[in-house]
């Protein structure tokens, strides 16, 4: 499971981070539709079951409210709030 859990890390100003377990997703689109800042979109690629999972397209907009996590019927997505936006050093480390 952990290897499919792909962190989608947003740019320096973000307050939230979205984690998607791509292969659990069944592509219902609830997270994309009901995301308050509308930062998610269907990815172009398929997951291993043939569904388009969501991806973060506007990372700077994510607030980490975790409403996507609350809506997801497949427990495939969740968001966490960054404690505080920390500049470059931390960002460089987490992007590896």
């Amino acid at each position: 499971m952990p290897e499919t859990l792909t962190p989608i890390i947003s740019s320096r100003k973000v307050r939230g981070r979205v984690y998607v377990d791509r292969n659990r997703c069944k592509g219902c689109g609830f997270c994309i539709e009901f995301c308050p800042p509308k930062v998610l979109s269907f990815s172009a690629s398929f997951n291993e079951h043939g569904y388009h999972s969501p991806e973060l397209v506007r990372p700077e907009g994510c607030t980490g409210c975790d409403l996507c996590g609350l809506y997801c019927p497949d427990f495939a997505i969740f968001a966490v709030r960054e404690p505080r936006p920390v500049p470059s050093a931390e960002r460089g480390a987490s992007e590896t």
């Binding site: 659990r24 069944k26 219902c28 609350l70 809506y71 997801c72 019927p73 497949d74 427990f75």
Partner: peptide, 23 residues
Amino acid sequence: FLRTERMPHIWCPGCGIGTTVNC
């Protein structure tokens, strides 16, 4: 709270039951 070894669950794409379990 989940028995993750049983995932993925049987509910169809777009079914609302998983959402209620989340809540």
